[in-house]
Design a protein around this nucleic acid. Structure first.
Lengths: 146, 146
DNA sequence: CCGTATCCATTCCGATACTG
DNA sequence: CAGTATCGGAATGGATACGG
């Protein structure tokens, strides 16, 4: 049987997973946010096979997360850059990274800092706020069934 | 060749993906946050095969995201509940859901509301703040290379 | 340097039948 | 009700060779 298609699911979380629900796509977006732009840069940084990198890039372009721009230097090849839609995934990566640091921490690892591009100050953790502005912890909030 | 193992990757994002990097795991956690606890409840809600549901639940338990508690009613079977580590994934789901609603919106859909469990008020979007308290947009911030 | 094409192994997923 | 066992098809992923 065919794999289930989440693109037209009722739940927005499920639809998001249809675009970035796999493994490599998330890491590609992560690398794109650090300035990686070229095919071989992605391949070298991620260490994945060229064919599946090509497939993932194609899917991300089709999903509107990445776009191919003509070139920045003189070369005839395109570069993969994040669209605004792709840049908006930043919050997802921050949340994931924060969760991992809080709960999947590894001994003696170098924690990559999240920095403000202008002043270099470390960014504060993500925070959920209720309508009246007060902070919420996860167990105070309910995710309604879709 | 073997699939690459991200469990001991240097990047916290990659390590997180080793636990919840697949499709169904995210949806299982989402359902767990809405109160789903029993095997067949998950199976019915997600519509996935029983064998892979069993495998995913096992992996999530091994990863410390879910725990099996004896029973809440009288039955002899266990129930799957989120650990604190699993509850902390709430922020990731909120970010993902928010991104999807902002950028992958579907016409005429019913948007599931995110509510404060106590007063029922809708929750405000996730916000990133710099050290001095001001709001940051994604393109203002740099995710440093890992 | 940027991909595509091919081959192969592994994994994922669905359907179903079966056991306690 | 809660799984386990098995099967087949599809997708994923790695290695490599090839053409633009």
């Amino acid at each position: 049987m065919k794999k289930k298609n989440l693109a037209d699911a009722a739940c927005p979380i499920a639809r998001a997973l249809d675009i970035v629900g796999d493994w490599w796509s998330v890491l590609i977006v992560r690398d794109a946010m650090t300035g990686t732009r070229r095919f071989n840069e992605f391949a070298a940084s991620l260490g994945l096979a060229r064919n599946i990198l090509a497939a993932r890039l194609k899917k991300l372009v089709a999903g509107g997360v990445l776009a191919i721009v003509p070139a920045s230097d003189g070369t005839a090849y395109g570069e993969y850059v994040l669209t605004p839609k792709g840049q908006a995934l930043f919050y997802v990566l921050v949340a994931l990274r924060q969760w991992s640091q809080d709960w999947v921490a590894q001994a003696g690892e170098h924690v990559p800092q999240l920095l403000d591009a202008r002043d270099g100050l470390p960014v504060q953790p993500l925070q959920l706020r209720a309508g009246d502005g007060r902070l919420l912890s996860p167990h105070e909030v309910v995710l309604s069934r879709t």
